[in-house]
Write a protein that binds this DNA or RNA. Structure first.
Length: 401
RNA sequence: GCGCAGGUGGCGGAGUGGUCAAUCGCACCUGACUGUAAAUCAGGCGCCCUAGCGGCUACGGGGGUUCGAAUCCCUCCCUGCGCACCA
């Protein structure tokens, strides 16, 4: 069956949320021939939690899948034991088979919100690496040269700093690239940080006398700090399995200048509409806050549904605009009839230690039933339904005393 | 194996015998401002209490010197660099 792609759709497919394509003209032609392409995407089995940054290439895959192309997911269980040198982690602990399978389950569950897993081809790369012998390794090693591999920016940096590069790390790009040979990849999708690895796929395919895959690089998404790329280790991420309200709130905390980028690569809003929002903000006709509300609604809708998104919006306005109490407040049971305010804050987990509780009070960050508390020596009578608030977003109520 | 340089708070990075719970920057928290943010400003950022020029725990692990150690000594562990053929 031939796959038809309209020229308009093609254009968006190849530009929106895309940083670079090699070789773009070639890919374009192939897409127009109507062939069903095999599109490779590698997954790191050590990090099963998906955040919005990970959704960028996944969403791209989805678009291809909807057109009828074949997505081939590769779980790099074998290569994970080596550790990708493009990460900052130095050495990685090898994961057990069980951990990898579990991680992958988790991954699929989340990725399933974006792509259709049933239509996806899945491989562990240990499938082939465990079988193939040392001879294969020697043969593969010939596909790359030291110079070629050392050109990598992060290797260059390490050389300049006089730090070690292990032989294993040198081999990593080759191993990873060999997957492209095994699955006969036509196109590989990945973040721009993977450029070198994906290019290596082309080289290794050539080595094995195969047509070279095209590669599509997706942009890296800045996290909620607005500066560094979204990453779990920076703590600036928005996870897919985040509760809708938290997700909404985190999106609202994005710096304004990221609104358009997020619209473009994290939502399905049409490019025309996004353009309108952009000019609206530039001409001060649209309050960035409202644009961001719109953005938050779009994204929350994608992962939690429209109704939930509307609820989250209401909740957000309630807390931050009207400065009212949230509808749902974690309730806790306290046995004591009266407690020192510091103990109360620790018991309700609103402060991690009494010292912290004291500081919060001294700085005017603690309210009980809406009243700012200034005295940290105060004895509080515990009453049912009592509302305790720390800062803008931490609440607790007394369920029973 | 030999030699050298290091291991300090979430991170980066000062401090080389007392006034160090440890300068500073980042991150983070609270308050003000606001349009949710950002920026800016103010404050905070080990724990405990009878709240004080208070106590306790902390500067890779262990031991020691000293009235007193992050700072000196010993030992162990770890990291990086150099040497290990000729120079």
């Amino acid at each position: 069956m031939k796959i038809k792609t309209s020229s308009q759709k093609l254009e968006e497919l190849l530009t929106r949320g895309v940083e670079e394509i090699i070789n773009k003209e070639h890919l374009k032609k192939r897409l127009l021939t109507g062939e069903k392409l095999r599109i490779k995407f590698g997954i790191d089995p050590t990090a099963p939690d998906i955040h919005l940054g990970h959704t960028v290439p996944l969403r791209k895959l989805k678009q291809f899948q909807e057109l009828g192309h074949k997505i081939v997911l590769i779980i790099g269980d074998f290569t994970a034991q080596i550790g990708d040198p493009s990460g900052r982690a130095e050495a990685r602990k090898p994961l057990s088979k069980k951990e990898i399978v579990n991680n992958f389950k988790k991954y699929l569950f989340q990725a399933g919100k974006i792509i259709d897993i049933n239509k996806t081809e899945i491989h562990y790369n240990s499938e082939w690496f465990e079988k193939e012998g040392t001879i294969r390794l020697l043969e593969l090693s010939r596909a790359g040269s030291i110079q070629q591999i050392l050109r990598r920016a992060d290797f260059q940096k390490r050389i300049a700093e006089g730090r070690d590069i292990s032989l294993l790390e040198i081999l990593y790009p080759l191993f990873q690239a060999y997957d492209s040979v095994k699955v006969k990849s036509d196109l590989e999708v990945g973040g721009t940080d993977q450029k070198f690895n994906l290019l290596m796929g082309r080289r290794v395919q050539r080595h094995y006398q195969m047509p070279e895959q095209d590669i599509m690089l997706t942009p890296l998404l800045e996290g909620i700090d607005g500066v560094r790329k979204m990453s779990k280790s920076y703590g600036n991420y928005i996870a897919l399995d985040e509760t809708p309200n938290i997700m909404f709130e985190k999106i609202m905390r994005l710096p304004d200048n990221l609104i358009i980028k997020y619209f473009l690569i994290c939502t399905d809003k049409s490019e025309n509409e996004i353009k309108k929002i952009k000019t609206g903000i530039e001409r001060n006709q649209i309050n960035p806050r409202d644009a961001k509300i719109e953005l938050a609604k779009e994204i929350v809708t994608l992962y939690h549904g429209e109704k939930t998104a509307q609820k989250s919006e209401k909740e957000f306005n309630r807390i931050f605009k009207e400065k009212e109490l949230p509808t749902k407040i974690p309730a806790i049971t306290i046995k004591e009839k009266s407690l020192n305010i510091l103990d109360l804050l620790v018991k309700t987990k609103l402060a991690s230690s009494k010292s912290e509780a004291r500081r919060l009070i001294e700085q005017g960050g603690v309210r009980i039933n809406g009243e700012v508390q200034k005295d940290w020596k105060k004895q509080i009578e515990i009453k049912k339904g009592m509302m305790i608030q720390v800062g803008k977003r931490k609440f607790s109520s007394i369920y029973q005393s």
